[in-house]
């Protein structure tokens, strides 16, 4: 069976085509195309502009995906789209496109939970069996484990998501948003050497990032204004913008690894799967690997094609649901900004 997946819950618009072989086995990715709305340095992406971007690009991307996969419309079994969570206006644009294609091609629709899309794609690509999942992106920070037909949230960010914290700090420093603010912070952090003290906010399996952002924003102001050059306590060297990127990464990723380890100890699992855009950060993957090795476990991560929002994950999760007989009726093909991971009944797993 073949599914078309449309994703546009944030600033990435993704279209993917996936094939599930009739006798089971690994899924075939027929095409996976994406176009990202990049805002100027110092600015985030606004819902209005992002939705406009998606409307402008959706037809082109669907055409391109179909062409790459060399498929005819008749080959497609269902059209999957992101129902939520995400930004309202971009979600709506994509839902409208999905409905339009559904009517035009006379295909069933499947509304997909964005987070479940990430988890299922990560499992498919890495082959992780029953991992604890760390889902980290610009809008979401969750530690998830599967139990009796649901992806249960063990811990999560209590305020802003970790990716949002990084994105907004990139705005403070006016770092480029191309290809992604987090990527550019990661590159700068490689030059950083001094660790500045930042709040460390872990509560059980939950964590908080807004205080860290406020705190490092204040430090950034001082570095930029060069107010007497704040110095490192040990070496007496001047703190740089690179040091701030380094410190921010070290602090927030230590928090994420800590809550993941706690969840692993809690459920007795030795596998971790990292999904979501922040999951493509190599330092986070490295730290998670050290933790997992010390527990005699292993870490699974995917590269940017599958970590960062994409259409193929929506196609994959949607097709899993479709194969168990669940579709979304045309009149129910809405989208929602709030759609928790544990609301989805996972019929396709043991």
């Amino acid at each position: 069976m073949i599914a078309l997946g449309l994703e546009g819950s944030a600033n990435k618009l993704g279209v993917g085509l996936i094939l599930h072989p009739p006798k089971g086995g690994a899924a075939h990715i027929l095409s996976n195309v994406r176009h990202t709305f990049v805002s100027p340095p110092g600015e985030g992406f606004l819902p209005k502009d992002t939705a406009k971007h998606h409307r402008l690009w959706i037809i082109r991307l669907v055409r391109q995906a179909m062409k790459e996969a060399a498929l005819r419309v008749e080959d497609i079994n269902c059209i999957c789209y992101t129902k939520g969570p995400g930004m309202g206006a971009p979600l709506q644009s994509v839902a409208v496109a999905a409905r339009m294609l559904g009517l035009l091609w006379e295909k069933k629709l499947v509304g997909v939970n964005h987070c479940v899309g990430h988890i299922e794609m990560g499992r498919e690509i890495t082959g992780a069996q029953n991992p604890v999942v760390l889902y980290v992106s610009g809008g979401n920070t969750q530690v998830i484990a599967y139990a009796s037909q649901r992806y249960r949230i063990f811990g999560e960010a209590l305020d802003i998501a970790v990716g949002n914290c990084l994105d907004r700090f990139a705005r403070t420093l006016r770092i480029s948003n191309d290809p992604a603010p987090g990527y550019n912070i990661e590159q700068m952090a490689k030059q950083g050497r001094h660790l500045v003290d930042l709040p460390y906010a872990v509560k059980g399996m939950d964590c908080s990032f807004s205080g860290i952002l406020a705190s490092i924003d204040i430090l950034a102001e001082k570095v930029d204004a060069n107010q007497g050059g704040r110095k490192d306590d040990l070496t007496n060297e001047v703190i740089t913008r690179e040091d701030l990127c380094f410190s921010l990464q070290e602090t927030v990723y230590a928090m994420l690894v800590e809550i993941t380890e706690r969840a692993m100890a809690h459920v007795g699992s030795s596998q971790v799967l990292i999904v979501g855009g922040v999951g493509s950060n190599e330092r986070l993957q490295e730290m998670m690997g050290i933790m997992a090795r010390n527990r005699r476990g292993s870490v699974f991560a995917t590269d940017e094609r599958f970590c960062i929002d994409n259409g193929i994950m929506i196609a994959h999760a949607g097709l899993l649901a479709y194969e168990t007989g669940s579709t979304t009726a045309f009149e129910d093909s809405t989208c929602t900004q709030r759609f928790r991971t544990d609301e989805v009944f996972v019929k396709w797993r043991e």
Binding site: L195, D197, Y200, E250, T251, M287, I290, M291
Partner: peptide, 13 residues
């Protein structure tokens, strides 16, 4: 000590 954490941060925590 947690090897994944920066030693300064680890000591502090």
């Amino acid at each position: 000590a947690k090897a994944y954490r920066h030693p300064t941060l680890d000591k502090r925590l």
